[in-house]
Design a protein around this nucleic acid. Structure first.
Length: 268
DNA sequence: TCTGACCTGCGA
DNA sequence: TCGCAGGTCAGA
């Protein structure tokens, strides 16, 4: 699942439902998603706390309670559900939150690639790059980042320590919108191309958030619904299908061991 | 810089 | 039965 638009969608749904709620009880399964805290500590420290807010940085979601911060990285298949009955894989629900008001919240992660940390002060992000919706992410800043990394442009987009939040689906779609081949080197992009790429990042992500993210397999919103952005993908998972813009056949190559899709005619 | 490992479900 | 999948990280 979760790239920036999916995490943002989850955040926007969690906020109105749970901010101000008192956690009565937390049940966890002893799975290896817990990083700097044991499952038992996690339960003990969270019970009796009030949910103060949720925030996001790149693909990371932060739950803030009074006096502590829980950082979630949802891996490939982590989701939150407000109803257990919406789960397609109830055996893979690892955390259950029960609130004083009677509300509940469930964390499910089928593949267990997700990670959870617990902090008693604001989490630090030493290795995390700038968020594309950060005010400081300007065109000038973007060009500087481009020139600082000598690599192909698709891997550049997915490198979380440079720009945080873009994964495989959106990297493919961003490059199609900008008309740039994934294998092009960052250093060789023209001024026009880097400008197109910058606005493509912003617009593709913004549109995906508006459509509640992209649902493949396990990804669901907090209310159990599907995202809608999968209906608008131009290249991702469209190998051998005609390009919606020019009708050329969409190609697939493996780049950095990830499937990479592009239109050989629209992207140069 | 690249590959394999982590884990499970699904479709070919 | 096998290969693939939205991610990250250690180790070669």
């Amino acid at each position: 699942m979760p790239e920036l638009p999916e995490v943002e969608t989850i955040l926007r749904q969690l906020k109105p439902l749970y901010v101000g709620e008192m956690i009565r009880k937390v049940k966890v399964k002893p799975v290896r998603i817990f990083q700097n805290v044991t499952p038992a500590e996690f339960t003990n420290k969270l019970s009796g706390r009030e949910v103060r807010g949720f925030s996001r940085r790149g693909k990371y979601l932060v739950l803030e309670c009074n006096g502590l911060y829980v950082v979630f990285h949802l891996g490939m298949s982590g989701i939150f559900l407000k109803n257990k009955t919406d789960s397609l894989f109830p055996n893979h629900i690892h955390i259950e939150f029960y609130f004083e008001s009677g509300k509940m919240l469930f964390y499910q992660d089928v593949r267990k690639f997700g990670k959870i940390w617990l902090y008693f002060s604001e989490p630090r992000w030493p290795a995390l790059g700038i968020d594309p919706f950060d005010k400081k992410f300007t065109l000038k800043k973007f060009r500087k980042l481009l020139s600082s990394r000598a690599m192909n442009v698709k891997q550049f987009l997915m490198e979380q320590s440079t720009i945080a939040g873009i994964g495989n689906i959106y990297a493919n779609e961003i490059l199609f919108r900008a008309g740039i081949l994934p294998l092009r080197k960052t250093a060789e992009l023209s001024v026009e191309e880097s400008t197109a790429l910058y606005y493509s990042i912003k617009n593709i992500l913004k549109e995906a958030i508006k459509r509640y993210g992209t649902s493949y397999s396990a990804y669901r919103t907090v209310s159990g619904g599907q995202g809608e952005n999968q209906n608008f993908l131009k290249v991702y998972h469209r190998e051998n299908q005609p390009c919606t813009r020019c009708a050329a056949v969409i190609k697939k190559v493996i780049l950095g061991s990830r499937s990479t899709f592009y239109c050989p005619k629209c992207q140069r």
